[in-house]
Design a protein around this nucleic acid. Structure first.
Ligand code: ZN
Ligand code: ZN
Ligand code: ZN
Ligand code: ZN
Lengths: 168, 168
DNA sequence: ATTTGGTATGTTATAACATAACAATATGAA
DNA sequence: TTCATATTGTTATGTTATAACATACCAAAT
């Protein structure tokens, strides 16, 4: 409800590696978040908004307790559930992603509805880049010069036996 | 029931869903493990062997502490590091995989050198099936009737900035 | 104006997962 | 033997995550 004329998603570029205008990346993320929450009729409350800002500022994956420490310094919450709830909200609404390999969280590079994503995680500098899960991202990795050493692919859902009994 | 009794890995069957000869699947896994360890000149010690058996018997992903509890009942170790070391050994040698989404471990469906794998995890019954990470596994999922609800793709390695400084 | 229902937050306590650090033991060359 | 290395045993602690319950807030509905 602010700068509603925010572009969908910058380039389909790989956000995370190399240099970029970080301030802009933050304001963009926030304004997109406003729009997404408005559209989904959910509230981007102060805590949730601040956690998103923290992730956007961090420019790396942050653990829940890292986020919590920052919140605590600002008097916005000091107990684990506060951080976990806000992070859960952001993930559920497609504004952030959980990185399973790191037990950590990153702001989404192209926020919108909840979506799958693929990540490239540098073991040397900790940079995390989000890509579209097209192909298997090997192509993407080659394109940007990322050297894959290990790959996690995990799908959760319903197995052939359980699909029939699907109620939920 | 895709149990041809060849010493090599069965075709590219999806192990994990449906019924199969589980006893055989265990003996097969163990004999493959012997071969792999011999080839790699590493020792499949009693604890390591037993942990692999436990995973093969379980037919589902087990947490480290689940494994540890079983070991403890048999007097093979009772402290976390014992389980984590054995699991680490199995993973390093391509005999088991860690499932990040579950913080759990499964026996490899086609043991050999360390390799990447793709997994389908049923949220209803807990079954875990291993597949080749070809394409992005969406095709595989459709073929076997697995209904994907969420997908994790995470590559770890070296980013474009860090590749040049690569020493290791 | 009060009750009621929904959403969000605050708090305690504990569960669940993982590793650092060091001691003890075995194994197998030199 | 003696040394080196690999493995196992043990203590202690660190890290991540959630269950369970209490409170605050706001917005209808009575
Ligand atoms: Zn995203
Ligand atoms: Zn890097
Ligand atoms: Zn495997
Ligand atoms: Zn199932």
């Amino acid at each position: 409800m602010k700068n509603d004329a925010t572009p969908k998603t910058p380039p389909q570029a790989i956000v995370g590696f190399g240099k970029h205008d970080h301030a802009q990346c933050k304001t963009h993320g926030l304004s997109r978040a406003e729009a997404v929450c408005a559209a989904a009729k959910v509230q981007l409350t102060p805590v949730r908004r601040r956690v998103l800002e923290i992730l956007l500022e961090a420019h790396e994956a942050l653990g829940a307790y890292d986020v919590l420490a920052r919140l605590a310094k600002e008097g916005l919450g000091s107990k684990p559930p506060v951080a976990y709830r806000a992070l859960g909200f952001l993930v559920d609404n497609g504004l952030a992603h959980r990185i399973e390999k790191l037990n950590a969280y990153v702001a989404c590079a192209h926020p919108g509805e909840a979506h799958d994503a693929a990540f490239m995680i540098c073991r040397a500098c900790g940079a995390v880049a989000e890509a579209e899960p097209r192909g298997m991202m090997k192509r993407t990795a080659v394109e940007v010069g990322f050297q894959i050493e290990s790959l996690v692919i995990e799908a959760e859902g319903l197995c052939p036996d359980c699909v029939p009994k699907a109620s939920l």
